[in-house]
Every structure is written in structure tokens, then in C-alpha cells.
């Protein structure tokens, strides 16, 4: 089956700023796909292009086989887009907001009740249906915005950092909902700077400064890096940081509260590392082998990228 979204050699600049450079990826039907990266990575530019709000400078971007340059209306009819600042009407109630967006997307009257019931089921907003949107908590606002985005039953859902600024509990609820939607067959493209959210995606593309650094499943990316990592419980974090950093075979060191995470060169095994550290610190050390996180992978990728550039 053809992918639902196909992005090939896509580039976009704003004046001198090259927001996205030669980006390629595809999203399969029914996939929960993540654009992962910090501010300035090019995530929003890519998403706006997917939903036909921006035109690519170069490359080809299609949604369900339709070109974003040419078939704007048809693409908009099958996509739901939730920008970072989604405009709900604060002085309308939850239900009035849903009805308003239904009107906007020409949802047939006879289908509206059913759809609202379905949206209420997963958002659990029914008991708040008469509350003004302006008086909802941050997490509930996000759920209402998502519901409004879904009111016309889109095939493709595009969500730009939907959980930024939302508290951790609401975040995890929001991701539960995304998984439910995927079960129902909705294809989702979501952007996030959070690595723990990236882990919840089927596949991701990691972006930095407009460039894709890698794509694959989160698991693949972590396994492909072969980053030997160890944790060392250490109280004198700062005092010993530079000494450990300078020890032979150590690539990088990171403090985490009460421990240090040490990344080593590939050919250094645990025994050699602990020997090197014992010599440096002049006392016995106990290392724990730990798995790298997606953030460690991200950092390694960025560092590789800069090495190549230099």
C-alpha cells in the first residue's frame, strides 16, 4: 500500500533562514509518526506544509497521493490540523465549540450527534459540555482542541507539539487518546521536543536545525547507536566531573542528581573503564551498565552531524 504522506527532498526557507533542508520521510496508513526535535528544528514548517498552509520551495510533498501545491482543498478536507496555539472560543461552551467547528467543516447534521458522542467518549468532556472553554484546565483545553480537530473525521491528524505546557498527567492521558485514535485507523503525525513522547511513536524522524538526523522506530535508533553507557553513583559530582571526563576511553559525562552517566568509546569494556576511573579517582568504583536513552542517541547524532560539518 502506498504511504499516506510522502515527503521527498523537501526544502523551505524564510528569506535567509533555511527552515528545512532536503527532508524526506513517509508515513504509512494507521501509523503514529513523530517529528522529534527542539525549537528551530523545522517541525512546524514541515507540518504546515503537510496541511497546505505553506508551499514547498523544493521537493514533493503529497498526502494520499495529492500534491500539497495543487490540491489544497481536497487535502484540507481529509486532514485535521492542531497548531501549537489552537484557537478555541473561550466564551463559547465545550459543546458550542464543537458545533462551531462542525459547521466550519460542513459536518452533516444527522451525523453530528454520533460524532460528538464518540469524541466525548474518549475526551471524557461530556460532563463539562456546558462549561466555557476559557474556564477549562490546560489539559482539558488540549482535549477539546483535539476533538474540534477531529470533528470532520479526518484521515490524517497533524498535531504540532500538542502537549507543550501541559502537565505530566494530562500529557500521559493525551497520549492514551492518540493511541486509541490510531487503533481506530487514524494516521497521526505529531511533533514533540520530549524524548519520552518520541518513544511512544511507531516511527520517528529526528530533526535538528532543519535537517533530518535519522529515522526509524525508537528501538531501532537506540540499538543502532551502540553507545556503551554506565552509571556511577557519585556524590562529588562537580569536583570529579572534569577528572572523569578526561579519563581514557570516556566520550562524555552527564550529571543526573546523584549519579553520573558515562558514555565510552565502543572498544572500551567495563573492566577497562573501571580501571581507568579507579586510577583517576584513586579509589574503587562500582559501575552499572545502563541502556542509552533516546536523548543520548539524539545528542550523539547531533555531535556526529557537527563532526561531519567541520
Amino acid at each position: 500500500m502506498k504511504p499516506l504522506v510522502s515527503v521527498e527532498h523537501f526544502s523551505k526557507s524564510y528569506g535567509e533562514i533555511r527552515a528545512v533542508r532536503d527532508l524526506s520521510f513517509s508515513v504509512r496508513r494507521g501509523e503514529l509518526f513523530g517529528l522529534i526535535g527542539p525549537d528551530g528544528a523545522g517541525k512546524t514548517t514541515t507540518m504546515r506544509t503537510l496541511v497546505t498552509l505553506l508551499r514547498p520551495d523544493e521537493g514533493t510533498v503529497t498526502v494520499d497521493g495529492m500534491d500539497v501545491r495543487k490540491q489544497l482543498k481536497a487535502i484540507r478536507a481529509i486532514t485535521g490540523y492542531m497548531p501549537q496555539r489552537f484557537s478555541l472560543y473561550p466564551d463559547l461552551s465545550v459543546e458550542q465549540n464543537l458545533r462551531f467547528f462542525a459547521e466550519l467543516f460542513s459536518v452533516p447534521r444527522n451525523e453530528l450527534t454520533d460524532r460528538m458522542q464518540r469524541l466525548y467518549r474518549f475526551s471524557r468532556l461530556e460532563e463539562f459540555s456546558t462549561r466555557l472553554a476559557g474556564r477549562l484546565s490546560g489539559g482539558m483545553k488540549q482535549k477539546l482542541a483535539l476533538s474540534c480537530t477531529l470533528i470532520h473525521d479526518p484521515v490524517l491528524l497533524v498535531l504540532d507539539e500538542p502537549t507543550t505546557g501541559v502537565d505530566p498527567v494530562s500529557r500521559s492521558e493525551f497520549w492514551e487518546i492518540l493511541r486509541e485514535l490510531r487503533e481506530q485507523g487514524v494516521t497521526i503525525v505529531v511533533s514533540t521536543p520530549y524524548m519520552d513522547e518520541a518513544m511512544k511513536c511507531d516511527r520517528i524522524v529526528i530533526m535538528h536545525s532543519g535537517v533530518a538526523l535519522a529515522h526509524g522506530t525508537p528501538g531501532e535508533l537506540i540499538n543502532s547507536m551502540r553507545l556503551p553507557m554506565y552509571a556511577l553513583d557519585e556524590r562529588d559530582l562537580v569536583m570529579n566531573f572534569s577528572r572523569i571526563e578526561a579519563a581514557s576511553g570516556v566520550r562524555s559525562v552527564q550529571s543526573f542528581g546523584d549519579s553520573l552517566h558515562i558514555t565510552t568509546d565502543e572498544d572500551i569494556d567495563e573492566d577497562r573503564l573501571s580501571a581507568a576511573l579507579e586510577q583517576t579517582l584513586d579509589r574503587p568504583v562500582r559501575l552499572r551498565r545502563i541502556a542509552p536513552s533516546l536523548e543520548d542517541v539524539f545528542i550523539a547524532l547531533i555531535e556526529q552531524g557537527t563532526e561531519h560539518a567541520e
Binding site: P38, D167, V238
Partner: peptide, 30 residues
Amino acid sequence: GGVDPISRRNFWRIIYEIADSGKTVFVTTH
């Protein structure tokens, strides 16, 4: 929040140095 992981790690390294110099660091975050 929202910062790339390298900048974040560099930032925290400074925070550790600040704390090590005897200042107390009180962090609120989501």
C-alpha cells in the same frame, strides 16, 4: 523547556557548578 538536549546538558552542568559553589537551586518544572 523546549531547548535542544545539548544546550540543556550544558546548562545543567553550569547549574551543578552553581550549586557546588554553595548556592541553592530551587527548580519548578512540568
